[in-house]
Design a protein around this nucleic acid. Sequence first.
DNA 1: GTCAATGCAAATCCTTTGCATTCGG
DNA 2: CCGAATGCAAAGGATTTGCATTGAC
Lengths: 128, 128
Amino acid sequence: MRKTKQKEFVLSLLQKRYDHPTAQDIQDQALQEGVKIGRASIYRILSDMVSAGQVRKLLTKDNVAHYDFYRPNHVHIVCKNCGKIFDLPSEKIFLQDFKQNFGGFEIEEQEVELFGLCKECKTKNASI
Amino acid sequence: MRKTKQKEFVLSLLQKRYDHPTAQDIQDQALQEGVKIGRASIYRILSDMVSAGQVRKLLTKDNVAHYDFYRPNHVHIVCKNCGKIFDLPSEKIFLQDFKQNFGGFEIEEQEVELFGLCKECKTKNASI
DNA sequence: GTCAATGCAAATCCTTTGCATTCGG
DNA sequence: CCGAATGCAAAGGATTTGCATTGAC
């Protein structure tokens, strides 16, 4: 696994951002900062990072994959109106420990997602 | 909203099945039972049902949408090897009530997913 | 009879793959 | 230099859309 500026860019971007960008978002940002990355490379890099457990792949209702630097015990809050994904500070929530056996199923990871309306959408559009 | 045999078929299928079929699965089953439904109609029907809250759309790592008749307080267990999605009987797990306000975000729904290895995959392939 | 709902096929969009080229070690 | 990693373009696969046709009411 060689160190390339493409990989460095993707990882550092994900570490900096908390808004769960898509592959497209990452490519746009790269081009904007003068880093050239092809779409295929983005997907390959992200896929490797997901396999390595560094990055988490989130699938939302828009059918587009969002990528998230792995931060344990985080909970995602998805706005049903604008689709934005927020991180819920983990201290605010008690995550029950699900790592038990259920009928022979061995639980390795848990993911909690909450859906609702974010502050902005609730204010802007009271009719939803 | 007119009652058609396509809609009836899709809804009754989802009510009967607990294995979260994809649009393709639904169409296959329909054809097998002699009910003719085009792919577009399946997607339109499912999309309407999701909007109406009758059906839940699940997105898994295979990038294919799975559909699930809405049963409150269910927890999904996804096998990381074979991709099967199981329902966890809700009595077996304590679902914390997340319906609070977090920084102006109003929580309406919660979804908990657990990932691991199902019994079969764990037995068959100890190397994973 | 009307118009919502369907089926078909084409279009669209995200993601993956094949392959020649580049560049890290 | 060698071969892993990249970029490009084409391919693949799921979902959506346009439009003529069908069928529920």
